[in-house]
Amino acid sequence: MSPAEDGKHGLACPRCRSGTIEVLTNSPEENTDPDKYPAAFRLKPEDLAKFPLVPTIPPLRRS
């Protein structure tokens, strides 16, 4: 079932408004409306790239 078909989900990720979404499971406490998602937890695509990378990726060993 696509997100649009089940009638319960929006067409965008409530956190970052990405249009690439997939329903994995349903919860009784859903918040699928980007406008109602708490402001402190909203993301912009450029924020994702700024997330700290942990742990750092080491150089490959030379064989």
Binding site: D47, L48, F51, L53, I57
Partner: peptide, 24 residues
């Protein structure tokens, strides 16, 4: 190996959310 993806936030033990990181 050598992959990281956005993870979080998660309400953590210091009584704050962790924010987001790129984790394995």
């Amino acid at each position: 190996a050598r992959q990281r993806e956005p993870e979080g936030p998660f309400g953590e033990f210091p009584g704050q959310y962790s924010g987001g990181h790129r984790y394995p």
